[in-house]
Write a protein that binds this DNA or RNA. Structure first.
Length: 204
DNA sequence: GAAACGATTATCT
DNA sequence: GATAATCGTTTCA
């Protein structure tokens, strides 16, 4: 149990400094360990999407947009969090990749609860009949279940209250990829990765 | 300063 | 399947 939270198992800047596409694939199976609010909640990443550099028109840091107050974290060092609010009501968590001044990130689209289901249910205001697998299904849900808000924008993911751990790697035979969800530009780029047939993956 | 839209989700039919 | 909720960010005047 203690080993799960061992910082030695953390995925650091070296892991995240690679191209977003590679990091996204590598993040499948990794753990997000949240101790936000003093409550421990752990989620295993089962779905995520890569947003490449300025040449990716779907990115919040696409060349036509440039650096803004919102996307500033994407221009920072790899291994930090980029958290933004979507549709005025939900928070979404990204892991920053690439190098300083080159904006790229991986959107965490779904997590499977590993520990802390009780606090996840409270945060989600989940009905009792909702299965555990639905607690972190979808980017807004995943962030909500882990207690993530805009306060963590720019947070280094190698230390509490939110860190990335190596978790349980997923073999290539269990990984599917396809177009990203909800984007209108570059809609056919196959940059969404997920664990095949996993119940916590969104839009199955 | 005003308007449109969005890397979504809940709820209703 | 369709639509409302809800507001920060971007874009355009």
């Amino acid at each position: 149990m203690t080993a799960r939270r061992d910082p030695a198992g953390a995925l650091g800047p070296a892991f995240c400094r690679r191209p977003a596409e590679d990091v996204a694939r590598g993040l499948l199976g990794a753990w997000l360990v949240s101790t936000i609010g003093g409550e421990t909640a752990i989620g295993r990443i089962v779905e995520c999407e890569a947003y490449l550099g300025p040449h990716d028109p779907a990115s919040h840091a696409a060349e036509r947009i440039g650096r803004t107050a919102r996307n500033a974290a994407m221009f920072g060092p790899a291994g930090r969090a980029y958290v933004y609010r979507i549709y005025g009501l939900h928070w979404c968590l990204n892991v920053v990749t690439g190098t300083v001044d080159v904006p790229a990130a991986v959107l965490i689209r779904a997590i499977a609860p590993v520990e802390g289901m009780a606090v996840m249910r409270t945060r989600r205001s989940a009905r009792p009949e909702l299965p555990d697998s639905a607690l972190g299904r979808g980017p807004g849900h995943a962030a909500c279940a882990l207690g993530i808000t805009g306060a963590l924008d720019g947070h280094a993911l190698q230390r509490p209250p939110l860190l990335l751990a190596r978790g349980q790697p997923v073999p290539d035979t269990d990984v599917d990829r396809g177009p990203r969800v909800g984007v209108t530009r570059a809609k056919d780029w196959p940059l969404r990765f997920w664990v095949r047939a996993h119940p916590a993956v969104s839009r199955r």
